[in-house]
Deep mutational scan, measured.
Amino acid sequence: GQTTVQVRVPYRVVGLVVGPKGATIKRIQQQTHTYIVTPSRDKEPVFEVTGMPENVDRAREEIEMHI
């Protein structure tokens, strides 16, 4: 079944991970077949990644490449 993982990043890289108009996070979602919730600016900088476990792992690696 599907799993949801929280990926915490430093505040300063949230914009990098999301990309211009969300382009980068969309690409990560498409490439890894996951659904990613982006943290809002006034909340903790935690991305929520949902999908099959192996896909979630890949998405987390993609996010962490920006750190």
Rank of each mutant, 00 (worst) to 15 (best):
G1S: 12
T3P: 02
T3Q: 10
T4F: 01
V5G: 08
V5F: 09
V5W: 01
Q6A: 12
Q6K: 15
Q6V: 14
V7M: 07
V7P: 06
V7R: 01
V7T: 02
R8C: 04
R8S: 08
R8T: 11
R8V: 04
R8K: 14
V9T: 01
V9E: 03
P10V: 03
P10T: 05
Y11A: 15
Y11Q: 15
R12Q: 14
R12C: 08
R12Y: 13
R12W: 12
R12H: 11
R12M: 08
V13L: 15
V13C: 13
V13E: 09
V13P: 02
V13K: 15
V13Y: 12
V14K: 04
G15T: 03
G15F: 00
G15M: 07
L16S: 14
L16T: 12
V17G: 05
V17R: 03
V18W: 04
V18T: 10
G19E: 01
G19A: 01
G19T: 01
G19C: 01
G19S: 04
K21V: 04
K21F: 14
K21G: 13
K21Y: 13
G22N: 04
G22W: 03
G22H: 02
G22Y: 05
A23R: 14
T24H: 10
T24N: 15
T24Y: 05
T24F: 01
I25L: 11
K26W: 03
K26L: 04
K26Y: 00
K26C: 00
K26E: 09
R27Q: 08
R27C: 01
R27L: 04
I28D: 03
Q29R: 06
Q29I: 03
Q29T: 05
Q30R: 12
Q30Y: 04
Q30C: 02
Q31G: 05
Q31V: 12
Q31M: 14
Q31L: 12
T32G: 03
T32M: 04
T32V: 04
H33A: 11
T34K: 09
T34E: 06
T34P: 01
T34M: 02
Y35L: 13
Y35G: 06
Y35A: 13
I36N: 11
I36D: 03
V37D: 08
T38I: 11
T38G: 14
P39Q: 07
P39T: 08
P39S: 10
S40L: 12
S40H: 09
S40W: 10
S40Q: 13
R41N: 13
R41A: 14
D42E: 11
D42S: 09
K43G: 14
E44K: 03
P45A: 08
P45G: 08
P45R: 06
V46T: 06
V46A: 04
F47C: 08
F47Q: 04
F47T: 06
F47E: 04
F47A: 01
F47I: 01
E48A: 09
V49K: 03
V49A: 04
T50S: 10
T50L: 06
G51R: 03
M52A: 12
M52K: 12
M52R: 11
M52V: 07
M52Q: 13
P53V: 03
E54P: 10
E54G: 11
E54L: 09
N55Q: 15
N55F: 03
N55A: 12
V56I: 11
V56N: 00
V56S: 07
D57L: 13
R58K: 14
R58V: 05
R58G: 04
R58I: 00
R58H: 03
A59D: 00
A59R: 02
A59H: 01
R60W: 06
R60M: 09
E61T: 13
E61L: 10
E61F: 09
E62C: 14
E62N: 04
E62I: 09
E62K: 12
E62D: 07
I63A: 01
I63R: 05
E64R: 09
E64C: 09
M65Y: 15
M65K: 15
H66V: 15
I67D: 06
I67H: 12
I67M: 04
I67R: 06
